[in-house]
């Protein structure tokens, strides 16, 4: 009974630094600079619908590609011997420990017009190609930065699939393809939805990847929000409205995959 008191400092902290700030976002989204209630910020989002749809489109593509690549990789790792699983997992996670700005910067040096890939292709008298500052580069940056977020949750459910369950399926007549569709995928559902959320959420809200690899013509919703708070077009009210819309998208995606509050979703 007494130990409940221990959580009081945190509860106060949580209210001040988590609940109230979110309340402020909602408050700003529905007020003018002078503090009057308005829908105009929300209505103004109409001008940015193309940006919004671009953000969603890019992140959906990136998430799907991460899923397609992540499934075989995680399955392969989950079927290795225990010790090897740890090593392989470390290999997959290691790049995540390097700040994502540096990782994204690395792609700039590879993709730019004068970059390594074009130089390499130049040896065969091919190119140069326009590899950077386009939508493909932004999607590539998303996949590169967030694919470990797909592999990890997939791996952690797949490694729990008992080998004898796979053997039982083989025993009952399953060939490789059926094992995947009838056993592995259904038993990995939880990991798939966690992976989708953990890749989609940072992708749809990024502003660095698009700025560094998109070259200003592929602005995403994150870039617009950033410029309302720190950029030239300072307007926290419009920025808050956008943040609110972004939050709604995230909540929709999460309730779609039915994960809210599930502790397993934490890596």
């Amino acid at each position: 009974m007494k130990s409940k008191i221990l959580s009081i400092p945190y509860i106060i902290w949580m209210i001040i630094f988590t609940v109230i700030p979110l309340g402020l976002v909602i408050f700003f989204a529905f007020t003018t600079q002078s503090g009057e209630f308005t829908f105009s910020n929300i209505v103004a989002m109409n001008d940015y619908l193309d940006v919004l749809f671009r953000s969603i489109e890019f992140s959906v593509i990136a998430t799907i590609i991460c899923l397609i690549l992540g499934l075989p990789v995680s399955y392969l790792i989950s079927r290795l011997a225990r010790g090897k699983q740890g090593t392989m997992l470390m290999i997959v996670i290691l790049p995540m420990w390097i700040n994502f700005l540096l990782r994204t910067y690395a792609w700039m040096t590879l993709l730019e017009e004068n970059g390594l890939i074009n130089r390499f292709l130049g040896l065969f008298n091919v190119g140069p190609f326009n590899l950077i500052n386009n939508s493909g580069a932004v999607i590539l940056g998303m996949i590169y930065n967030y694919i470990p977020f797909m592999i990890l949750p997939l791996y952690s459910v797949m490694t729990k699939i008992d080998e004898s369950v796979v053997e039982a399926a083989q025993d009952l007549g399953c060939s490789g393809f059926h094992i995947i569709t009838r056993i592995i995928l259904p038993l990995s559902k939880q990991g798939i939805s966690t992976g989708i959320i953990t890749v989609f959420v940072p992708s749809v809200s990024t502003f660095i990847i698009s700025r560094m690899l998109g070259g200003g013509t592929n602005d995403l919703i994150g870039d617009i929000i950033e410029s309302q708070f720190l950029g030239n077009s300072y307007n926290p009210h419009l920025g808050s409205a956008m943040a609110l819309v972004l939050m709604v998208i995230v909540i929709l995606i999460m309730s779609l995959f039915n994960q809210f509050g599930s502790e397993e979703a934490v890596i």
Partner: peptide, 29 residues
């Protein structure tokens, strides 16, 4: 390969498919 053999196995810890109900487990093969 196992899936082409005319033998079936009852596994040590049963290895039932946790995502299927009893009927679907039995009907699997």
């Amino acid at each position: 390969p196992p899936h082409k053999r005319q033998v079936n196995t009852v596994f040590q810890k049963y290895a039932l498919f946790p995502h299927l109900n009893i009927y679907d487990n039995i009907a699997f093969g």
